[in-house]
Design a binder for these strands. Structure first.
Lengths: 343, 343
DNA sequence: CTGTTAGCGCGTTCAC
DNA sequence: GTGAACGCGCTAACAG
């Protein structure tokens, strides 16, 4: 059987309250006794039972981490950063992979509250009303990542989605491209609508009208990019560039191009998003917009921790981290403004 | 304030003991009362506090998942499978990313025990003595993944590492390759020594002597593959094929080949391991040995759960799951037995 | 400063 | 069948 505070108290010939006090430094204890207790603790290798502690303190040193997918490298790096930072601060991570399923999300949220998690990190490109409601009703600290809460109700950290898409599109425009497809995710994700807006804005500044038929609504993975690509390349008039919502989508698009007899970037330029490790190792190497994932995770964890430790006067911050265009080989400059086309 | 068993008892005009009985079906309760209690539970949306429950039951519905890295796609898919299966069975996953650091591993193990986790999944290519010791001393159910416990002390699930490497090497041999490099991980990992043995065995059967200089001891990521490649390609006499311990290493190796003016597979064949999603989308597409990661994760979770539910008479199983050689474009057949060489 | 006591929320004897 | 009472291990009043 494990040893408890009682054992320590007996062996040190003090009350359990005293033991508790020296361990938590909650009340002054005489040096002599303190010393004795500490020795016994050492000797018995005593560790306070965190469960019993949770029951009273209503805290658990547990943080819930809700993510939409885990196989996605971008996300797994984020998860790694969060976990690392939390571990450093003596918190443990409860992994909740929701697969974007609302039922699972809600189920997990309820479960997390019951387990007295001290806070939750919500990685979501689009918080659902029920999630908002949950955090408004229950006072558990939360931070949104990959989504900026514009209403100041919750702490959040993210890149500027609009600006990132704007910059990416402008980069393509400045490279001479005039017809640019957008391989996006579901418009149900706020992230996608913001990026789409940025894309439109850049187009507009170049006097180009937004063309609905150049927008493809799929998902973030390779298959999505491939599907969108196969559809697009089936048309007669091809764009000269494609802006993708993720590097995986870009890779899928490149694969589709290849299967359609198109070369990247000679026949068509493809731009990614995220800059995951494979982006630089893929061939052609991906021109992409980098998100500082790791830093994003670390800062998210820190912001959450600060919120937990300073519950009263923590001011909710909507932090924006910088993105960056990374030029590599999957995009090229075009001089004449001809349409791309099949061979 | 949250509602407790007391509230339910009062509203249903019964004792808390009765409420507990109907909820846990631990003792017979009259139909009428049972009904009433259930209604009140419904009405109040009562949920037993899992922390209080843990304190008494010494169980937590928590499972610890120890992994050596998270950014690795192979691992994150594994993690996803585990989490999904556990969630289905009402268990929550505690994510412990150890980064192969023994201190972190031990720290986490201690922490998990204190939190009364009901079991742990240990993904490790090489369990350390301290880990073994831990599980021998503390009766917490555990399953080893990516490692087969040959001594029958613990449940385990894995592919046959020796056989997989043997098959891969033989595949290369049958394709006409005679000089095959091995881009491996640290020999401190049991997994690596087993694969190396399989590789040697296949070589032996073809009457080829093992050449120490063709073994490169690095890690599992792209950079490792690149490093090994750059070293290897700096020599005069090049092998015609490379067997890599992971797809990422293979990609790194291909990159190094490219930077050295070598074409894959024309000048050199490169074989991967794992068959992660990018393996098929990369160019050249990776010939690799597939591990059924997802299935491996699901089964690991199931085996652990069975062990937890049937603690007494669970017989520890060392399950082997099948691997498979996947032929794609990164390896080619060679007819004449000339050495590969620089252009 | 230190010990005694009362819970935290729940499962479980033990009497009735 | 059902309820009162105890205890899981610990923290936080409350006395002294």
């Amino acid at each position: 059987m494990d040893i408890t505070i009682k054992d320590v108290a007996m062996k040190a010939k003090v009350s359990i309250a005293t033991v508790s006090r020296v361990l938590n430094q909650s009340k002054p204890v005489s040096q002599a006794i303190k010393q004795r207790v500490l020795e016994v603790v050492e000797e018995l290798e005593y560790n306070p039972n965190p469960v019993a502690r949770s029951l009273i303190m209503k805290e658990s040193k547990l943080i819930g981490l809700l993510i939409p997918a885990i196989e996605n490298t971008y996300i797994s790096i984020f998860v790694g950063a969060i976990e690392e930072e939390l571990f450093k601060n003596n918190y443990t991570t409860l992994l909740c992979n929701t697969k974007r399923d609302l039922d699972i999300e809600l189920h997990y949220l309820k479960l997390l509250k019951e387990k007295y998690v001290d806070g939750v990190v919500l990685l979501t490109s689009s918080p659902k009303p029920q999630q908002i409601e949950f955090f408004e009703n229950h006072a558990v600290p939360v931070i949104f990542a990959s989504h900026t809460d514009t209403e100041g109700r919750f702490a959040s950290i993210n890149i500027d989605e609009f600006q990132a898409a704007y910059d990416a599109t402008k980069f393509l425009l400045e490279s001479g491209h005039r017809k640019i497809a957008f391989f996006g995710g579901p418009l149900a994700y706020y992230q996608i609508v913001q990026r789409l807006e940025g894309y439109k804005q850049a187009l507009k500044e170049y006097g180009i009208e937004y063309d609905d038929k150049l927008f493809y609504e799929q998902d973030y993975d390779i298959e999505s990019g491939y599907r969108s690509g196969m559809k697009l390349f089936n048309n007669d008039e091809l764009p000269t560039a494609i802006f993708c919502v993720s590097d995986m989508v870009a890779i899928g698009a490149i694969r589709a191009a290849e299967d359609s007899g198109l070369r990247v970037p000679e026949d068509i330029s493809v731009m990614g998003f995220d800059d995951i490790p494979i982006a630089g190792a893929y061939r052609p190497a991906l021109t992409t917009v980098r998100q500082p994932v790791y830093e994003l995770g670390v800062q998210a964890a820190q912001m959450l921790l600060r919120q937990i430790q300073d519950k009263e006067n923590y001011v909710k911050e909507a932090r924006i981290v910088p993105h960056e265009i990374i030029e590599r080989g999957s995009c090229r400059k075009v001089t004449n403004n001809t349409q791309g086309g099949k061979l």
